[in-house]
Design a protein around this nucleic acid. Structure first.
Lengths: 135, 135
DNA sequence: TAAAAAGCAGAGTAATTTTCTCGGAAATGA
DNA sequence: TCATTTCCGAGAAAATTACTCTGCTTTTTA
C-alpha cells in the first residue's frame, strides 16, 4: 500500500512553485532542472493541477506557472487528491467493512489536509525550524 | 490511491474463519465457495497469514485452517500489514515530507488497529447491532 | 520577427504490480 | 488405500504506473 510517484512528484513540483511564490512565473523547464525530473512528465502532472485551479499558467516567453492561491491556502491533500484521484480504499466494499474503509479514508485526508504548502516551503527554506510537526 | 484486493480478500477470508472459530478447521474450499473466490488465490493469501502466525493449518482430510488466536486479539491492521506489506507511503522521501508520510502511515495503522476481527464477525452475525462505529 | 514557453494530443513502451491459474507433492483421516 | 486437503513453485494474463517521444499550435516578450 503506497502512494504513487505522481502524488509525490506533484507535491515536490508545488513546493518548487511555492518557493518562488510572488516572484513571477516559473517555467517547467527550470523546475525540471532543479528537481531532476523530466519536463514532459511534469507537463502531465501540472495539467490536472491547472484544471483543478491550484496553479495558473502564463503563456509565452518568460511565462510559466504560478500558484493560483497563497501557499497557506493549499494543502497537501488538495494536491494529492487531484493527482491520485480520491482516496478510495476499496471500490465495492463488504457491508461490514464499509465504515472501516471510510474511517481510514477520512483519517488520511485529515492528515494530508493538516499540512499546507506554506508549511512545506518554510520547512524547506529554514530546515526544520518550524513547529508544525511537534504537535 | 487504494488498497489492493489482496488486503480486502484477506480480511474477508479471516472474517470467514472467525465465523467458525472454535468449531474446528475450515477448508479453503468451503471459504472459496461461500465467498465466491478462487481457492488457488486464497491459498496465496493464507500462506503469509500462516507465516505471520495469524492462522494455523491442519493438513490432510478434514483439515483446514483455524485462527491462531482469539478473534478479539487480531486486528484488521494485523491482516492488512501482512498482506499489503508495511504501509510505506513512499520509498525515498524528501526530507520535508518524511514526517508527513510518517504521520499518514501512523494514522492509517491507528484506524486499522482499532477494529478487531471479533468486531467484524459480530457485525456480520448481528448486522450493525454493535456500537463500535458510533464512537 | 524570432525565441521561449505553454497547450494539446496521442502514441508508445518498459517496468512493475496485481490478480489469478495450473500442476503436482506431501500429509492425514477414515 | 483413497479421498481430502494443505503446501509449494512456476508462471500467465491483465492492469497500472511511470514515463518518453513526437509534433504541432498558440501566446507572449524582447
Amino acid at each position: 500500500m503506497k502512494l504513487s510517484t505522481k502524488g509525490r512528484y506533484g507535491v515536490i513540483l508545488m513546493i518548487d512553485l511555492g518557493m518562488f511564490h510572488g516572484e513571477g512565473p516559473v517555467s517547467l523547464k527550470s523546475v525540471a532542472e532543479r528537481q531532476s525530473l523530466s519536463e514532459h512528465y511534469l507537463e502531465q502532472l501540472i495539467a490536472p493541477l491547472r484544471n483543478a485551479g491550484l496553479v495558473r499558467s502564463i503563456r509565452g516567453a518568460y511565462g510559466g506557472y504560478v500558484l493560483a492561491k497563497n501557499p497557506q491556502e493549499i494543502t497537501v491533500g488538495d494536491i494529492i487528491r487531484v493527482l491520485e484521484g480520491p482516496i478510495t480504499i476499496v471500490d465495492d466494499p463488504e457491508e461490514e467493512l464499509k465504515e472501516l474503509w471510510e474511517r481510514v479514508r477520512k483519517s488520511i485526508n485529515d492528515v494530508l489536509d493538516s499540512v499546507t504548502l506554506q508549511d512545506l516551503v518554510e520547512k524547506k527554506k529554514f530546515g526544520g525550524e518550524n513547529i508544525m510537526f511537534y504537535i
